[in-house]
């Protein structure tokens, strides 16, 4: 693909995206409109994340792509291959070695460090979207800090179910100002958002929005004082590496409905196994 520019997008487009990113970093949690380009993969399949990554990648970077926490899911493979072809950057499956990580629906288990960039793929950037379908109205609500409706939703959950009934894409308040959708990560991952040493960038291609969290930003999951936010945790260790602190995938292993629980973060799990940790289902 020698006839395409580095990382596919032309320089003007990258400049436009970087300007949006800078605005997003300057106003943490605020959704910056940007002119999303038509990419070779469909809207809804990570074009926002791909455009953000394309805008920030340099030839010296080491790029990791995960989907559902794994490097080997088909869409992660496809996106990694795309950047290998159009940017020729080195790719890696190791979280620690990567300089730019594009992710769909998970934050890696390993703590990220300064100098790393985490790029999230976002389907619906607007946390109020399902309470108020009109974009014109939600933009006003953000600018006027009218978030009563969001709390009404949480109130209704508790009155109906006894608990807040949101388990992923759990809304957060950033630096005490903007309510933000952290993308469909499980609420288990929410605590990692705040005070992270790495830069976090969020790209929504189809909805044409970019937002960002600079390092060490205050991020608080919405809750009530008497119903505080709980990052839920499965009560099993990982069947392969025995980790007790990671998010687990549930696998159906036989016709009788037998279950096994394995770390969703494949790099984390493999590294632990290589270091000698063994779960009850490991060979």
């Amino acid at each position: 693909m020698t006839e395409y520019n580095f990382a596919y997008l032309d320089e003007q487009t990258k400049r436009m995206i970087r300007r949006a990113i800078l605005k997003g970093l300057a106003i943490p949690g605020y959704q910056v409109p940007f002119a999303s380009r038509e990419m070779p993969m469909p809207y809804g399949w990570g074009t926002g994340g791909v455009q953000v990554s394309a805008a920030v990648l340099t030839p010296q970077d080491r790029f990791k792509v995960i989907d559902q926490g794994a490097d080997d899911t088909t869409n992660a493979v496809s996106i990694r291959a795309f950047f290998q072809r159009t940017a020729g950057v080195a790719t890696t499956t190791s979280t620690g070695d990567a300089t730019v990580i594009q992710t769909r629906h998970r934050i890696p288990e390993d703590t990220l460090s300064e100098g790393q960039i985490l790029v999230y793929q976002v389907p619906i950037p607007e946390p109020l979207r399902f309470l108020e379908p009109r974009e014109s109205e939600t933009r006003k609500m953000h600018s006027l800090q009218e978030y009563g409706l969001m709390h009404v939703k949480l109130y209704e959950d508790i009155s109906r179910h006894g608990h807040i009934a949101t388990s992923y894409a759990y809304p957060v308040k950033v630096e005490g100002r903007y309510v933000m959708d952290p993308s469909p990560i499980p609420k288990f991952d929410n605590p990692k958002l705040g005070d992270m040493a790495a830069i976090q960038l969020f790209g929504a291609g189809r909805e044409q929005r970019i937002y960002a969290l600079p390092p060490y930003t205050q991020v608080v999951s919405l809750d009530f004082e008497d119903h505080p936010f709980e990052a839920s945790k499965a009560d099993h260790p990982c069947g392969m590496c025995a980790a007790t602190d990671s998010y687990l995938d549930e696998l159906i292993v036989d016709d009788a409905g037998g279950r096994m629980f394995v770390c969703s973060d494949t790099d984390y799990c493999e590294a632990r196994q290589a270091a000698g940790h063994k779960g009850k289902d490991a060979a």
Binding site: G148, L149, H151, Y155, S159, F224, E225, D226, H227
Partner: peptide, 24 residues
């Protein structure tokens, strides 16, 4: 589409009330 309690509580939540029990 919101319960009676939610309707009455909304203005409270809009001005910063954050205790479910108190709001209710």
């Amino acid at each position: 589409g919101v319960s009676a309690g939610g309707n009455v509580g909304e203005r409270l939540m809009a001005v910063g009330e954050r205790h479910y029990g108190n709001i209710r």
